[in-house]
Every structure is written in structure tokens, then in C-alpha cells.
């Protein structure tokens, strides 16, 4: 083959490969950014933070925080009616339905290093936390347990037993309440058989 034609060809080949490669991904990225609107944190890092301790504070630690003299802000995300009828001392109100309204901008932007979210249930506080994290607010954490436990143990009765309470605490010995009877022996055998069948095609080449 003539050397020059070969060189021309290879030059074109490289250009085409690179362009196809780049074009494919450019279209993908543009398409993607049009289809999804910007979360400030990826699912992976959100999941990591939500399943670790770093974004949560229990009642014992909250008490330490309160007595430590560090800057903090208690944020009540229940609705205004509930807030008015009772709240943790010094808590401010930012209803979960209006987290991003202009009325509460000063709470969202407040200087306090730690802003503790609480609600009637832990799940509700976590919801608010997630929405705030998605918007890029990083100073919020959520209270484990809930408003009534926090109020009862921290500010009223001071019952230390409740300090570490949280929603995920096992409240029953599940196993003792849920006996698996003799009639379930048979299904276990069936399960093994199914495993066998599903493994069969794996061996082949």
C-alpha cells in the first residue's frame, strides 16, 4: 500500500474514532443535564451520610450541645399550629411544607454551625433534612427520637433512659412474637430446590 494513502487513512480513522467517542458522550451529558434538575449532592454521598451517624444527633448529645455554649439552632419543622401549642425551648419554626419559602430565609442562612431539625416523628425530620441537603444546605442535622421524647426527657422529666432512644430501636423481641410453625418446614426444602434450578445454566460456556 502506498505510504501516504495509509497515513491519510490513519489520520482520518483517529479523527473519526475520537469524534464518535466524544460526540456520543457530549450528547449524553447534554441530554442528561436537560432531563434532570440539579441536586446538590449525589445519591451515593446522600446514602452514605444518611446511613451513617454524621447527620444525626441523639438527645444525650443534644443536651451536651446545649450546655456546651456552642452555637446551635433548634428548628421545629412541624406546622405552625403544632409549634404554637408547644415546642422545645428557643426553637424556631420552619414548617416542612415551606422549607424554601422566603419567610424562612434567615433560618436557612443563619450563622449557627449546627441546626437541629426535629418533628413529631424522626422520619419527618429526616425528610426535611434530605430536602435541605438536596438544595445544598449543609449545616442541618436531624434529631433522632422525636419531639415528645426530646421534650419529655430533656426539658421536663430528665429521664436518662430515653436519651438514646430513636425510631429504629427494637421495641419487641420479634422472634418471640412471630413463631415459625412446623408447617413452614416444607417451604425450606422447596427453597433449596429452586436454588439448584437457578444455578444450572451458570455452569455452561
Amino acid at each position: 500500500m502506498n505510504l501516504n494513502t495509509f497515513k491519510m487513512k490513519s489520520s482520518k480513522t483517529l479523527t473519526i474514532i475520537v469524534l464518535v467517542f466524544v460526540g456520543f458522550f457530549t450528547i449524553g451529558i447534554i441530554g442528561k443535564s436537560m432531563l434532570t434538575s440539579g441536586y446538590k449532592q449525589s445519591v451515593v454521598s446522600m446514602t452514605k451520610e444518611l446511613t451513617s451517624e454524621q447527620r444525626f444527633i441523639n438527645i444525650a448529645d443534644l443536651q451536651t450541645l446545649i450546655t456546651s455554649g456552642n452555637q446551635y439552632l433548634l428548628v421545629d419543622v412541624r406546622d405552625t399550629v403544632a409549634y404554637k401549642s408547644g415546642r422545645l425551648p428557643n426553637a424556631v419554626n420552619m414548617p416542612i411544607s415551606e422549607l424554601f419559602s422566603d419567610d424562612y430565609a434567615d433560618i436557612r442562612e443563619a450563622d449557627a454551625a449546627v441546626k437541629v431539625l426535629y418533628a413529631d416523628t424522626e422520619a419527618e425530620a429526616v425528610k426535611a433534612l434530605v430536602m435541605l441537603m438536596h438544595e445544598g444546605y449543609t449545616s442541618f442535622i436531624a434529631l433522632t427520637g422525636n419531639y415528645s421524647i426530646a421534650k419529655g426527657s430533656l426539658f421536663d422529666a430528665q429521664n436518662p433512659a430515653e436519651w438514646y432512644s430513636n425510631d429504629e430501636k427494637m421495641r419487641y423481641n420479634y422472634k418471640s412474637l412471630f413463631k415459625v410453625g412446623p408447617s413452614t418446614e416444607a417451604p425450606h426444602v422447596a427453597a433449596d430446590k429452586v436454588v439448584d434450578i437457578s444455578n444450572k445454566p451458570r455452569g455452561g460456556c
Binding site: 415459625v180 417451604p187 436454588v195
Partner: peptide, 24 residues
């Protein structure tokens, strides 16, 4: 049913689910 453990509550189809999929 749950307490006495005499129920036919676990059908064959259900109990296969946990063993098969996650492991493989």
C-alpha cells in the same frame, strides 16, 4: 396465627425469594 406458629403463612413462592436472589 403468628404467636402459635401454626399458620400456613409461608407459601412456597415467598420463602424462595430471600435465598435465591441476593446470594447469587
Amino acid at each position: 396465627i403468628f404467636k402459635e406458629g401454626k399458620a400456613d403463612l409461608v407459601t412456597k413462592k415467598q420463602s424462595t425469594a430471600p435465598t435465591v436472589s441476593p446470594k447469587s
